[in-house]
Design a protein around this nucleic acid. Structure first.
Lengths: 194, 194
DNA sequence: CTGAAATTTCAGAATTTTCTGAAATATCAG
DNA sequence: CTGATATTTCAGAAAATTCTGAAATTTCAG
């Protein structure tokens, strides 16, 4: 591995982290390298810096492209492929979340919907189905929230995240404005707010 | 594998999903099984239902305990260990997020802080450090938001998530109330709001 | 204590994943 | 076209992970 120490530390760390995320070490290292690099790199650059085989880099880049995590570029008068990550780190986050949702949440939701359609054949299955419905509803809530937030432009997204603890205040304010006070239980009635 | 069809479908799916999350198939299956089960199960129950070895179950349960994802219980007059997931699915989500943060985000932040302390020895390292700072700041924003939201009780959390698209409206309202209109650039000044 | 039951540990087998080098394929300037 | 350059494919080697059975350890009732 042929990298400035500072870069190498980061690249090695992301290689290891990759493993915990179902992404292999080399793919993690390639991505880390591209992320830190000012200029786009071609496959041979990556081979030299990471000290892995050309074919390994080829497969790694293919996987990163399948994840939409790298952009393919060309330099004039050079027919090699150059790769880079988006300059905007928020774009990277959005892509990561989107792709993970597509690969993990969506298929799970499909399966849950299918299983919830079936007739339980026993008390055991009835309880299992109830648990699956809880999970289904949870995922629906989370993906619904994500669908909304994901549409915000980055500036508003940052604003929202920065708001943090103040969010609670806003919710309390909303309560005070819209809910008749006096009854702690009044929430349960949930008067079809429009 | 000796399970009602409906349960088996779910258990197999989570076994596969586990792989994508750096958790092995058996661990995923054990967790799925416990999640769906009405009653706590002991190790031998799990062996029978999943058809894997006793030692594999032992190791899987140990891992799930390390993740704080299962509770150990005892039945009177029975000295075997029984395992269950929390009844409250939100508790499960909170634990999952907390543990992943502890294992993935926190060590990464530590590394980033260390590397950002060092003196860059070249233009390349200077740029790399700049990128690392972007990532550091992003993580800081996200974990700060998380720290706040995590404190909300479940009811308010659901309220917040349900709010979804309305969030943007609230932010716009906040803008209109607190920011002097007329200048698109006024943001850059960021007047140390308290 | 004792010994049966329950659980854990761990070395090596089985399986899966990752990686490589060689060959095949694709691309494009001339 | 041709051949030089670039990229991909893929079979098998290498490495890593997962799983098992046997042995060791722990726990506890009697």
């Amino acid at each position: 591995m042929n990298l400035p120490p500072l870069v190498q530390t980061f690249v090695l760390h992301f290689g290891e982290m990759g493993s915990r995320w179902g992404i292999n070490r080399t793919v993690g290292q390639i991505y880390a390298l591209l992320y830190l690099s000012k200029e786009p790199l071609n496959a041979e650059d990556i081979v030299e810096r990471l000290g892995v085989s050309r074919s390994n880099v080829s497969m790694g880049l293919k996987e990163l492209q399948a994840w939409n995590l790298v952009r393919l570029q060309h330099k004039p008068g050079d027919r090699r492929d150059y790769f880079a990550t988006p300059d905007d780190i928020w774009q990277i986050v959005r892509t990561l979340v989107e792709e993970r949702k597509k690969r993990e949440i969506d298929p799970t939701m499909t399966l849950l919907r299918e299983v919830l359609m079936q007739e339980p054949a026993s008390a055991e299955e009835r309880h299992a189905q109830e648990r699956m419905r809880e999970m289904h509803d949870l995922f629906e809530l989370l993906t619904g929230w994500y669908a909304d937030v994901q549409r915000l432009d980055t500036e508003r997204l940052i604003q929202l995240l920065t708001l943090g603890s103040k969010v609670q205040k806003i919710l309390e304010m909303k309560d005070r404005l819209f809910v008749v006070p006096g009854s702690k239980k009044s929430r349960r009635e949930d008067p079809k707010e429009k």
